[in-house]
Amino acid sequence: MRQYLALAILVLFTACKKDETPLDNSTAPLSIEFDNIAGDKNLQLNTGVYTNAANEPFSVSVFQYFISNVKLTTTDGKDYVVPQDSSYFMINETDVASHSVKLHVPQADYSSLSFIVGVDSLRNTMDISRRTGVLDPASYSDHGMYWGWNSGYIFVKLEGTSSSAPVDASGQRYFRYHIGGFGGYSTPTINNIRSVTIDLTRAGIASVRRDRETNVHLMVDVLKMFGGSSSISIASNPTVMFGPFSVNIADNIPGMFRHDHTED
């Protein structure tokens, strides 16, 4: 009798334990690489010279952007949403480690990847105590990704020099594109949040397994920021920040992201 009881208790405990941790045993590493390029050249800050769709030569000195709200979809149509609190990333060209977004996701075959370029409106209006990591306005050393005067994050920042840019107050021919705007706290205004969905089937689905680290390699082309649904001229618009014109650049943003290959 006692033996049966012990067995029953054991079974009960095992059963309970299983229920508590349904996914942990099956997660595996997945990295998403954001490889910044300029057309058919690698992006080289300051030294590389590129030509945009308006035939203007330019160099890039700052390129950084937020990636957030990452979601994966399996080949059989199931969604895996990366937990909200760990789904904010800052890709900064000067920081190589930041180019690779490291995730742990359930083992599965993923055929689609989606994310937001920028920060969703909820996080833009959240209590300061919830803004940690890359969302902490104190976390940016030189190039802030947060507008204090008009509370909200800068989603994408591209700055550089171009002979097509007019001479600015500091005597340089500099262009500055700071794209942000989440739609406004209480009064509606521009919304430059853009979501990107990438079909992984053409260049290789991500088969995530415990015994390896799968890497989805994306190309992010700065040239596409100037050309896509709108052609952007540095000469005509050397400074684009929070203003109506920024929507034209925001509309080009999804076209910058392309899946190159998957390593697994």
């Binding site: 300061i128 947060y146 204090g148 005067w149 509370s151 209480s186």
Partner: peptide, 16 residues
């Protein structure tokens, strides 16, 4: 009215 939360206000003068 560019700042909608008192907890975010000091960032403006500090970084201006």
């Amino acid at each position: 009215g560019g700042v909608a939360d008192l907890d975010l206000q000091p960032i403006v003068p500090i970084t201006s």
